[in-house]
Design a binder for these strands. Structure first.
Lengths: 297, 297
DNA sequence: CGGCAACGATACCGGTCCGGTATCGAGGGC
DNA sequence: GCCCTCGATACCGGACCGGTATCGTTGCCG
């Protein structure tokens, strides 16, 4: 008799309909039927009377519905009290470029919902520091993009995105399905400020070895502006971000994908950070490429 | 946060020692450590301070210890109330021969412990009915021995035992490691009463086709007495039962094993009986030959 | 009265989690 | 300095969970 099964039972007992209860629980009907049957086996008594016309509560089922409701409420209280006893905690998330959108919406919402007592702060970094303040100790955990120098850090890939070139929609190449870096060799390229991680620069700053004379950009937004107004070439991960009017993204066929990662300083991240990592991974279910670190939390 | 994990935490918090807590929980230390760590991740706060000198509770841990104790107690109460609301239930177990010993000790004890409110009755049958009253509707579930006519019944093997001949200890064959049926061909064989299941008779009553003139036996005890006082040959499962003074069991090499089974009438056994089957299987862990019916409960 | 729709039960499959064994690593004690 | 204790980690096999596909029964309706 665990709390999960009790939640299942409450749903069925309230709906008096396995299918609707399953929908309410965001699952399908067969495992729910099985779980209720196991609960009945465990308790040793019938909880629901199934008849073709519908489902009815037995006396034992009615009793369990009442007990389970209070028990689940108590469990919630207990959780809240324990977290309160732990004192106010703060988690600072560093974000970079497009990961800010992720952190600001689903992920931060899910995390705040899971840990109501935690003070969650988000710090947006620019390209100057691809670790988004992680290495500098300004944040506890970072949502950022590969590649960067990750010595001393642990990273876990949330998603892999192909890289696209950002062009003005009136660009002759804007209609193409995909491009190669060569196709853009004669364009102006933006530049990164001094002091940017060389690994990051080598990946994102276009063909190395060339003289770059384009505008200096510090954020994804500045990068887009540079394309619009200076005719520079921009690079960005493909497929997840709406572009402003007048810009078009075209897949770059000969660049390796960029990884959206969650990163933390090694050596026992602590429960708050572990929980953040776990939630980040679960929110990002589509990326099934689970790696070792996240499995170990 | 489920009840199982809370039980784990209470054990560790009370012992302040992972190894001892694991022993108390009848498990080993590594999964316990992992479970506590996951609980900390889930709650998002540290519960225990591990130091080389020992384990200490953090404030949050102390709070959880208190909350978990009351929560677990509530859960126990809830369980008791639900089964009480179900009304008094009765489970009648039929036993045959040596299965009575099993039913009367570990299994019935485990079942009564799991379902304190259930009125458990045990009915011992004799060889006249190998289903131990199951087919006659006298019992809800039977612990018995194969082989017998099981049409309409579902059986699950708990254990397989080789068959032994029971001899007087002063018998010339009593010292042998094993025998064949032929070695006993010239002995007197006991007889079963009229009306015994023919499948059962064919297996246990010795070489068929011979004239049997030995004593009529109805129980395993009578069978042993027949050996002691009438010089008849007895058969019994080997290896689990102490023999009375003066008797020796010798393995019969050319007989198929006999199965100790739990049997019930098909078509939805009902929660009480399902629970009994589950407990019977789990008590009998050594027999790993899990079959389909028991998996489905 | 026969097809149909609804609904819970069952069969089966793949992924995850749990508990086990073996081993590591860090701190005290002799 | 060596060992011994104790919690953490790595890894593995089996169980459990949730999913899809399908069945059996029942009541309804043309």
């Amino acid at each position: 008799m665990d709390l999960r099964t009790l939640r299942y039972f409450v749903a069925v007992a309230e709906e008096l309909h396995f299918g609707r209860a399953a929908a309410r629980l965001h699952m399908t009907q067969p495992p729910l039927s099985r779980a209720i049957k196991q609960l009945e086996t465990d308790l040793g008594c019938e909880l629901l009377r199934r008849s073709p016309t519908g489902v009815a509560l037995t006396p034992a089922g009615a009793a369990l519905l009442d007990e389970a409701r209070t028990l689940l409420a108590r469990a919630e209280q207990a959780r809240a009290r324990v977290v309160a006893a732990a004192g106010t905690a703060t988690l600072t998330i560093g974000t970079l470029a497009d990961s800010a959108e992720l952190a600001g919406t689903r992920l931060a919402a899910a995390y705040r919902h899971h840990h109501p007592g935690v003070d969650v702060r988000v710090r947006e970094a620019d390209f100057t520091d691809p670790t988004a303040g992680l290495r500098a100790g300004l944040v506890d955990v970072a949502l950022t993009r590969s590649p960067f120098d990750d010595t001393g850090l642990v990273t876990h890939v949330l998603r892999s995105d192909p890289v696209a070139a950002v062009l003005r929609s009136d660009d002759p190449l804007a209609g193409r399905d995909s491009l190669r870096l060569q196709d853009l060799a004669d364009r102006r390229w933006f530049r990164f400020p001094e002091g940017v991680d060389p690994i990051w620069r080598a990946f994102w700053a276009g063909p190395s070895g060339r003289d770059h004379d384009g505008p200096v950009v510090r954020t994804a937004h500045e990068c887009q502006q540079a394309v619009l107004w200076n005719g520079s070439v921009g690079l960005m991960p493909h497929g997840h971000h709406p572009l402003p009017e007048g810009l078009t993204a075209v897949l770059l066929a000969d660049m390796p994908p960029s990884h959206l990662v969650v990163a933390w300083r090694g050596a026992d991240p602590g429960p708050l950070i572990r929980s953040f990592i776990r939630i980040a991974v679960s929110v990002h279910r589509p990326a099934r490429g689970a790696s070792a670190e996240a499995a170990a939390l």
